[in-house]
Write a protein that binds this DNA or RNA. Structure first.
Lengths: 342, 342
DNA sequence: CAATGAATTTAAATCGATTTAAATAACGCT
DNA sequence: AGCGTTATTTAAATCGATTTAAATTCATTG
């Protein structure tokens, strides 16, 4: 084991004053005599005193800690391509405010409710950032509306809950609009599984862009896949077999877009001359394909910083405006979408 | 704000007993009367009592929390391809033992020392998992040898510090050996920056494999790059310009390997017929190149679970054997390394 | 020098749970 | 009933820091 902790009491004993004086001195309270304060500071420095934050937290009734919570489902946060960037954004803000970050998953589905409750009530954290489960979940509702400080990463309808969300709809709209501007007339869309909200949002954005430009929406050109590269590949194969005509593909994520590109190339269709392709997510690999993939970038790091800022502002009693933030997506133009109109 | 916390005192008042009895009852202590215990449990359930862990921690002098710490350098953990998997492994174990995980970076270079010290002494965490800085760092030494419970993710020479490390040397050895077995005679090596330990390990593994098979080590075939795809590309260009002959390339990571593949293909060299390529890391993209990239997989998730297990065993007073663990790398054979000997 | 007010310091309570030693209650037995 | 046991319960201390109200010291002035 290692040596014991230096406490206020130790400093008080050595300085020959009370712990109250030491506490006030180290807090820079003007009530303590300058000479006394200097002496206390000196001793604290010499003993390498570091306040025990557990003791402090107990008294202050706050932990200066926020928690990032996500359910431990199969399609969980760990498999999200940009979880790390979210975490990086959160971390940056947390460190800047001298807060701590607790990372927490709910262990099993069954006692998920209990687990959330504990995190909410055991006072380890003062507030939480909630990464939504893909599954519809009443417990999340209960937490979000419990009044406990929460920032929800997604859309929340009832009440004025703090939220930060990606603009999946807007991103898809931008992607589709871009293809239209490039003169594409028949734009196919490969969706992710349609029981994911993100897939629905992107489909709607695609539809709206077509509508706004007076282009027909053809359900035959929409094929559902499952986010994997293989499924993107298969989607194109199916479309080819069905004899469909199209001059562009907007895919619901980059993996599917890359699979689609491979399939298109195997059918001898040139990208972007014959078919333009746009993806979503801006994963690293999108820069490395030939041609490099045009895609929609979702600024996850920024979502992290905004979420953490909102939560910490709430905890420190500062006003938070707006309650809901939609972080705009960005179109990243590369070679796969056609340089010039045809 | 939200309503106040239910405390032991509340339960005690309602049950008409002392807080001591409540505490003992909820802990299942046999000294309390079964009837009393039942009643206390019932009230606790009705009030949704959740113990305040801050209070408990203060008394118990432990936080049931471990911290994952990494320095906030430019080449930090967030940019490591497998940080997420490490985190996932750690999280799994932490949850299983009902511990908490604190994720922490040191804010700036300058007060890195102070920052470490704080985390060590402020009692927020009982022990730490330390992700090494790329930079040589005396503070890390101080922590590791302070006697504070630490698991170091890397090689540590002095003392019997707990460590878990990847086998960079062994992975490179396996990769090179595989190429030799495939009949390759002149194997080039594209290294990462040689001020990174990982680059040196992999270079040494490469050398050793050649040596063990009686093959000459030719320094001209070793070129330094910087882990990026572009630098891998440039490395091949330089080698071609220098008129070097080689029939295989072992790259210090997958990104450089992919860059190298592109460059090779642009020079009209076929993969794997003319040149075999092997990478390191097994990033997702390695499955998507044409041909798919043979590579070395480092089981980061397992490193995470082992590290967390070691730390928690230490904290709970269980023996930990062995102190040092080297997690073996795995060769993932795909198409880029030549199916048959020539 | 005493009185008044200002400057410092400190005793004690508090946060919430745990634990130990001591007190009280209940029980069995002669 | 009285005594020795055993079963339950509880008062009080503790963890470490903060904070308030009260106590003390110091300085100033009439």
């Amino acid at each position: 084991m290692h040596k014991n902790h230096v406490t206020l009491k130790d400093i008080a004993r050595i300085a020959g004053v009370s712990t109250a004086t030491v506490s006030l001195a180290l807090a820079g309270d003007p009530r303590v005599n300058v000479k006394t304060r200097r002496q206390v500071e000196e001793i604290a420095r010499r003993l390498k005193y570091v306040p025990n934050e557990i003791g402090r937290s107990l008294r202050a009734r706050k932990a200066e800690t926020i928690a990032l919570i996500f359910p431990n489902t199969p399609h969980n946060a760990f498999s999200h391509p940009y979880f790390v960037q979210l975490l990086e954004g959160i971390t940056e803000v947390v460190v800047r405010h001298s807060f701590h970050l607790l990372v927490s998953t709910s262990p099993t589905e069954s006692d998920e409710a209990a687990s959330y409750d504990k995190i909410l009530r055991n006072r380890r954290a003062d507030g939480i950032i909630l990464w939504p489960s893909s599954i519809k979940d009443d417990n999340i509702g209960r937490i979000v509306e419990s009044g406990f400080p929460v920032v929800y990463l997604g859309k929340w309808h009832r009440g004025d809950v703090l939220t930060v969300e990606r603009d999946d709809f807007g991103g898809a709209y931008m992607a589709t609009e871009h293809l239209i501007r490039k003169g594409r007339k028949r734009i196919a869309h490969i969706t992710g599984p349609l029981d994911f909200q993100v897939s629905i949002e992107r489909l709607e954005g695609y539809k709206k862009a077509l509508l706004d430009r007076g282009m027909p929406y053809d359900p035959d050109l929409v094929v559902e896949a499952d986010f994997t590269m293989e499924s993107g590949h298969d989607a194109i194969v199916r479309m080819q077999k069905a004899g469909l005509e199209y001059d562009a593909v907007f895919a619901g994520n980059d993996r599917m877009a890359i699979g689609a590109m491979k399939a298109l190339q195997s059918f001898g269709r040139r990208i972007p001359e014959d078919v333009a392709v746009v993806g979503c997510d801006n994963i690293e690999m999108a820069t490395m394909t030939i041609p490099a993939l045009t895609t929609i970038h979702q600024p996850m790091r920024e979502i992290g910083t905004i979420a953490a800022e909102k939560l910490i502002r709430t905890l420190t009693g500062q006003p938070v405006e707006p309650k809901q933030t939609v972080v705009p997506a960005e179109l990243v133009v590369r070679e796969s979408c056609g340089g010039e109109d045809r």
